[in-house]
Design a protein around this nucleic acid. Structure first.
Length: 377
RNA sequence: UCCUCGGUAGCUCAAUGGUAGAGCAUUCGGCUGUUAACCGAAGGGUUCCAGGUUCGAGUCCUGGCCGAGGAG
């Protein structure tokens, strides 16, 4: 196994843009297409690291902004890095805080130099530059780091989207420079890879421009940001296909923040290798579970005496053991086990979907898989 | 037996004599690089009963019923 980052493209689907691959990192291999559970503050909410291993998670996310505020990246570095601190010896990707630039609207001010944040916890002021965000992520020791980007909300004017693309491009160069200097100082290849992020809303020419600029700067992988923020599904899919086709064949493509199980299948077909989304975990805590028959709101009265598992077609440990009636009872009474069981199941469902996708690509029948997924939705 | 306080939505309680509300609970939605065990909507009332005063009573008066506390 390679000790540094490497993407291995194993197969390309003949009929679609789907790809089968492996990402090698210092903490292990990620089979792609991959779904990455979100663990913003050093935990995938409601489940343990042991659960994640049992579910088959190969990589999880952390968030630079949240971990920087609490407990602080220096503390984590002194504790031996994020992997050791949270006891997750497998790959970790840290998001840059670029999304928080958008979602903490009102608590931040964007300048050429970076982003001035007010902490949502205590109102204290902080400054994130593209360089600092790289430093923080290197201190955390993430296997994959993301550049600081400006993620515009939807709808956005063409002009503000254009500005965000330009600013993200300039920040990307600075992040890359900082990364290169850190590697020179270390005198070795860094254990953390750096991904660029393509912005551009749903405008093809802006996406093309952003993709070209990211390629020119050169990153270990390329992310598509600012999608599934409210635009029509067809627009998302079209832009994903358009953008993915303009990114290097031999490097991973990561669609940030997406999506529903159907989104995953559709975007794999358009050439995406990595996904992350809070949907399986957040929705689980709010009693929404994903099944082979679609979503169900398990706190509903109709499940009060339902002795079936969440998904009769699911092979997860929760579905093996617990009835809908019991899980609905746990939600009704506010028991925290409700969140744990629902999260475990939802993540298993997502990761199992990805396993099936990879199997289908390997077997050469992904197109069939795609059309039956469409028929079933 | 007397005195005091109280009785309003399933629960806990609001409402200068002027359209009876809130929180919780219930039911139903929503959640897409987590400020989210969150957010939204809906349903739900003979204001204990019977009289009275008043243009108008949950509110004031009389009587009763029920509950809590106190006195004897």
């Amino acid at each position: 196994m390679s000790s540094t980052f490497q993407f291995e493209l194993l197969a390309r689907d003949a009929a679609t843009g789907a790809r089968l691959g492996r990402i090698h990192t210092p903490h292990g291999v990620i089979e792609t297409p991959a779904f990455m559970p979100v663990g913003t503050g050093g935990t995938v909410k409601a489940v343990t690291q042991h659960h994640l291993e049992e579910i088959g998670a190969q990589i999880i996310l952390g968030n630079t902004y949240h971990l920087y505020l609490r407990p602080g990246h220096e503390l984590i570095q002194r504790a031996g890095g994020l992997h050791r601190f949270i006891s997750w010896p497998h790959p970790i990707l840290t998001d840059s805080g670029g999304f928080q630039v958008m979602s903490l609207k009102g608590l931040q001010r964007i300048t050429e130099d970076g982003v001035e944040f007010r902490s949502h916890l205590d109102g204290s002021s902080h400054f994130f530059s593209p360089e600092r965000v790289v430093d923080v992520q290197l201190a955390l020791g993430a296997d994959i780091c993301m550049i600081l980007d400006e993620c515009v909300p939807y709808p956005a004017s063409l002009e503000s989207t254009r500005r965000a693309v330009a600013l993200t491009g300039r920040w990307a160069r600075r992040a890359k420079d900082r990364y290169r200097i850190a590697a020179e100082e270390a005198g070795a290849e860094l254990p953390s890879a750096l991904y660029g992020i393509v912005q551009g809303g749903i405008d093809e020419s802006l996406r093309r421009e952003s993709a070209e600029e990211m390629r020119e700067i050169g990153f270990a992988g390329y992310a598509l940001g600012g999608l599934s923020v409210g635009e029509a599904k067809t627009a998302t899919y079209d832009i994903v296909e358009y953008t993915a086709s303009r990114l290097p064949e031999d490097q991973p493509r990561y669609l940030m923040g997406v999506g529903t199980p159907q989104d995953l299948v559709e975007c794999v077909a358009r050439g995406i290798d990595q996904f992350d989304c809070v949907m399986p975990t957040r929705n689980a805590r709010n009693a929404c579970v994903f099944t082979s028959e679609g979503r169900l709101t398990i706190k509903g009265a109709r499940y009060a005496a339902d002795e079936r598992p969440l998904d009769p077609a699911c092979g997860c440990a929760v579905c093996h053991r617990y009835a809908r009636a019991y899980i609905r009872h746990l939600f009704s009474t506010g028991e925290m086990l409700a969140a744990t069981l629902a999260t475990f199941h939802n993540l298993f469902f997502y990761l199992d979907t990805m396993r099936k996708i990879r199997q289908a690509i390997a077997a050469g029948n992904f197109a069939d898989f795609l059309s039956s997924a469409r028929a079933g939705s």
